[in-house]
């Protein structure tokens, strides 16, 4: 069982500001079902640039819900400039701290806030433009560098705790170490050596695949009364299940190979092999 502070428990059991602001001025949508946590933050901003209301909807564990609740309490009444200075550490501190393995929940809060502010200002987030390093959870190098600098991270394990990067298949570990070394160069004396053996599991690429399914593939299938579900990703093998009208369609194999696989190869990775579960 996790060691949660009383404040985390309190915010989890009695979350503040659940829901969606009506006619929101800014919306921040981060995370996904596949990743196990997601947060939708909506804010209302007045003429002076003050956040007058903030609400959240969160899918996730206790610390994700508590972080979201804390975040909405913190930003209400703040100017956008003040709010944009909030770090994930501030959110964790507000709750009296989070278990280190759960710091990514506070990072999710900060990301949602940034996304909502950017949405209000009609801007694109610079971190979203970085290069994806962790394919399992879709984390970019810019997000990782930022977390290293802001939270003073000194090991790959810490990067995983804060950003989730490296927490799936573990294949990006070398890359994370390299980014860490590059980022902290000249700032510190030593870097902790690798602590854990490499984990070879399956969440790799899931987020990107989910995104492509949602944006590119589902709308087409739904038009025909069908749907598709991502079941598992194991190395290059992507296992999916067709639903609805697609399930009984004689062309389902063609759909999978010619349509789904082709799209995923084009937009995610050209070595992927899509199979029906």
């Amino acid at each position: 069982m996790w060691e949660y502070t009383d404040l985390v428990k309190e915010h989890f059991l009695n979350p503040r500001n659940v829901g969606e602001v009506e006619q929101a001025d800014g919306t921040g949508d981060v995370g996904s079902l596949a990743c196990g946590d997601a947060l939708k933050l909506t804010i209302k901003v007045d003429d002076q640039g003050i956040i007058t209301d903030a609400k959240f909807k969160t899918f996730g564990c206790a610390s994700a819900i508590a972080s979201s609740s804390a975040l909405t309490e913190m930003v209400k009444g703040m100017s956008l400039d003040e709010a944009s200075k909030i770090t994930n550490e501030d959110i964790a501190d507000y709750l009296g701290g989070l278990p280190k393995e759960k710091m990514h929940c506070s990072v999710m809060g900060r990301e949602a806030l940034e996304a909502a502010i950017a949405d209000y200002r009609g801007m694109t987030l610079p971190t979203a433009e970085g290069e994806i390093v962790c394919e399992c959870f879709g984390v970019t190098d810019l997000e990782i560098i930022r977390a290293i600098n802001e939270s003073n991270l000194r090991s790959v394990e810490e990067i995983t705790n804060f950003t989730k990067a490296g927490g799936g298949c573990g294949k990006c570990e070398d890359k994370l170490r390299e980014i860490l070394q590059r980022t902290v160069e000249g700032k510190l004396e030593w870097i902790k050596p690798m602590e854990k053996p490499k984990r070879m599991t399956t969440l790799q690429k899931i987020k990107k695949i989910e995104d492509v399914l949602e944006r590119e593939i589902r709308p087409g299938l739904r038009k025909d009364g069908g749907d598709i579900e991502l079941i598992d990703v194991d190395g290059d093998f992507v296992s999916v299940s067709l639903r609805g009208a697609c399930k009984s369609c004689a062309k389902s194999q063609t759909t999978i190979k010619e349509y789904v696989e082709k799209k995923l190869r084009e937009l995610v990775l050209d070595t992927l092999i899509v199979e029906e579960n």
Binding site: G36, C136, K164, G167, L230, I231, D232, S239
Partner: peptide, 19 residues
């Protein structure tokens, strides 16, 4: 979240239980 890892149960995933 309960397993201490970032992935859900390998048993349910092997059965094809959707995320």
């Amino acid at each position: 979240c309960t397993s201490g890892s970032l992935e859900p149960s390998h048993v349910l995933r092997a059965m094809g239980v959707p995320f």
